[in-house]
Amino acid sequence: MPLTSSRPAILQQLRLETRPYHDALEQNEFNQALGAGIITPAITHHFLAKLYGFLVPYEARLRQHGFGPEWQLELRQRAHLIPADLGVGAAALPLCPAMPPLATEAQLLGAMYVMEGSTLGGQVLARQLAKAGIEARSYFSGNGEQTGPLWKSFCQLLSEAATEENQAEIVASASQTFQTLYAWINA
């Protein structure tokens, strides 16, 4: 049973406890090059290929879980945008061989926190890539004007799903997701 008092706490705890992993992930070659104004299509393509390799097994696991329609999973799945950005077939892209545990709803919620949060940053990245003349950016543009409302909806659903019993598992999963994504992108 959801506890009203834990609802805002889950988002605060996630932000606080995952901050070091979030910050480490942002130090990848792609973000560094973008920030330094030296981004290239090759660096962008490499980063997108790595994201694709993580997103495909993650999104497959989301579909298997059976989240209700209120989660709008069809709008939250964006891996399919990457092959078009790269101009390659999906079969040409490697998949992450070591995903974080995604067996329970709490583990999936933690991973969703990471991936849904990335959509907000993706909007900023899309604008920066456009300024740099990089065309491979439909993944980062994601749901366009719906990105903010989808994030708010996710936060509300996450707050409702968080309980005293599963909150620690959600946070641990978000931390593991950041760490696994970091290792995969930097491999």
Rank of each mutant, 00 (worst) to 15 (best):
S5T: 05
R7Y: 02
I10K: 00
L11M: 12
Q12Y: 04
L16N: 11
L16T: 14
R19W: 05
P20C: 05
E26V: 08
E29V: 08
F30Q: 04
F30I: 11
N31P: 06
Q32L: 15
A33M: 12
T44A: 04
T44M: 03
H46M: 11
L48M: 08
K50T: 07
P57C: 13
R63D: 10
H65T: 09
G68I: 03
P69C: 08
P69H: 12
P69R: 14
E70Y: 10
E70C: 04
E70I: 06
Q72T: 15
Q72Y: 13
R76L: 14
A79I: 09
D85W: 03
A90N: 01
A91G: 04
A92K: 08
L95K: 06
M99V: 12
T104V: 11
E105A: 05
L108E: 02
L109V: 14
G110T: 14
V114S: 01
V114T: 11
S118Q: 10
A126W: 03
R127M: 09
Q128Y: 01
A130R: 14
I134H: 03
E135T: 11
S138M: 06
S141W: 10
L150I: 07
K152T: 03
K152N: 09
C155F: 03
A162S: 07
E164A: 00
E165Y: 02
I170W: 00
A172V: 10
S173Y: 06
S175L: 13
S175K: 15
Q179M: 14
Q179H: 13
